[in-house]
Amino acid sequence: HNGKLCKLKGIAPLQLGKCNITGWLLGNPECDSLLPARSWSYIVETPNSENGACYPGDLIDYEELREQLSSVSSLERFEIFPKESSWPNHTFNGVTVSCSHRGKSSFYRNLLWLTKKGDSYPKLTNSYVNNKGKEVLVLWGVHHPSSSDEQQSLYSNGNAYVSVASSNYNRRFTPEIAARPKVRDQHGRMNYYWTLLEPGDTIIFEATGNLIAPWYAFALSRGFESGIITSNASMHECNTKCQTPQGAINSNLPFQNIHPVTIGECPKYVRSTKLRMVTGLRNIPSIQYRGLFGAIAGFIEGGWTGMIDGWYGYHHQNEQGSGYAADQKSTQNAINGITNKVNSVIEKMNTQFTAVGKEFNNLEKRMENLNKKVDDGFLDIWTYNAELLVLLENERTLDFHDLNVKNLYEKVKSQLKNNAKEIGNGCFEFYHKCDNECMESVRNGTYDYPKYSEESKLNREKIDGVKLESMGVYQILAIYSTVASSLVLLVSLGAISFWMCSNGSLQCRICI
């Protein structure tokens, strides 16, 4: 991952900044910058967002509201009850120091605090018919004063009620008058409520006091790749198909172990950190130390980045220098085999997901714990399936590479015959000098055995068991695999060879 928040398929997220979902939807004055928000790819909250409900109280069923919003990608904020005409018999300019803005008392931008007009609070009834052709999110509140005197001074009615009804919602609220500790300079409380109004449905408000009335509502448009994440990451000019709280993932790998919460087309989250597919040879310690064997393909974004291909070729060293050249036929066979294998694994496992966190309130801790156990169970199954699949494929890959290298080895052996000696570690020792032209003939299969047989015969008789390297004779190393990324691999195959001279070296080696 890149540690950044990015656009998702070209669409920017909605960053709530210092506000949370509650503050944004109710219209906390400190969240005025969010009022123009219309569309987004996903919503970003920060872990310690401080601006929620400015007048103390709870947004009821907040967790369910977050779940609903996680599939919303755009909205239209509109005046559901026009301020100047909807409440002619009531005062609608209630403000509070708890919702101060720029040093002055204020109130929510989407709600109206209705109080008595003169000395009376006549029963009010108002309704709205949803003609938007889509779901409408309606929010309101109920004020709970701290004393009967406060109730009387604001609403005149000691036994007030609030009723809200639609086809799918029907509740009646009565204020709970009680002494409470002071929070944000208030002994009173406000509880906030919401409902989704279906197209064509009607919502009716009736009250004799204590109503925090809707002013603006939201017509919602769903987008199934949307979601809500909690993150401290910063926004950058970048684009992605998959976003996590820790950063964007741009990967076609089937798995990731970065974060379980994802938005967009994302690899499946697994616990494993070692889900690797081999593309090189079986481990040979001396070669492995030099980083030549054991190439791997990573299938977990965050564990290993991208696929690494092994390729086969020849390396030689003689009086004229040293050089490398790919054996294109065996390399292409290996590439085709690995590509098919990788595609097979991805096809089997690479279903892209959006995974969002589930919200539970403080009273639902047991449910949250149960949900976590269920999620953990599914996660263990996914991890096991992934590891088992790759384990089985790896064994076949190792066998496949062994065969490829063996074929190259036999190709060289059949040409050199007794003009060189096998020394048991995949290397041959020449009994004759071999210049670049000679080396090329070994690589392309045109090695002239009779041409060098007499010199080889004489050297075999002279050496008589002495280690060949100390006599200045020449080696050919018969097994060799270097490691390159897919891009470098293609470039390498396009070149005939490249040279690395070893000044004054008397050794001649050709490596497979």
Rank of each mutant, 00 (worst) to 15 (best):
E429F: 05
N333W: 00
D309F: 09
S456L: 14
S453A: 08
A386R: 01
L253Q: 08
V356H: 02
L490V: 13
I476W: 08
N340T: 15
M471P: 15
V488D: 09
E265I: 10
A355M: 15
G313S: 02
C501Y: 04
T482P: 04
M367I: 10
M235D: 00
I258K: 02
N350D: 05
S441C: 03
S492C: 02
S456H: 00
C242A: 01
E429H: 03
S502E: 13
F360E: 03
G424V: 04
S497Y: 00
F255T: 08
I381Q: 07
I308C: 06
K358T: 06
L506E: 01
E301V: 11
S502A: 13
I423T: 10
K268E: 03
N436F: 10
I308S: 10
F255S: 08
R276I: 03
Q317D: 06
E368M: 07
N250L: 11
S322T: 11
E387F: 07
T339K: 09
Q256D: 04
K411R: 14
G310C: 00
L379I: 14
V374D: 06
D402T: 06
L388T: 10
S481I: 14
T244P: 02
I287V: 14
F299I: 09
I263E: 02
R460Y: 12
Q328R: 15
L408H: 08
C238A: 04
S470L: 05
I284K: 15
V356P: 02
G313W: 11
L253F: 05
N371G: 07
G280E: 08
V270Q: 01
H432S: 06
K365V: 02
Y447K: 07
F400E: 06
K467T: 09
Y431A: 01
M500S: 14
T279I: 10
I510Y: 02
K365P: 02
G426H: 08
S486H: 08
S234K: 07
L363A: 03
V278L: 03
Q243A: 04
V356R: 14
P285A: 12
T279N: 02
C511Q: 05
C238W: 08
Q507F: 02
F293Q: 02
G280H: 05
L468Q: 15
W311V: 06
I510V: 14
T262R: 06
S481Y: 06
E368I: 05
P245A: 11
M277H: 01
E461A: 00
T244S: 15
W499L: 07
G321L: 11
E422H: 04
S272V: 04
S502K: 03
T339H: 13
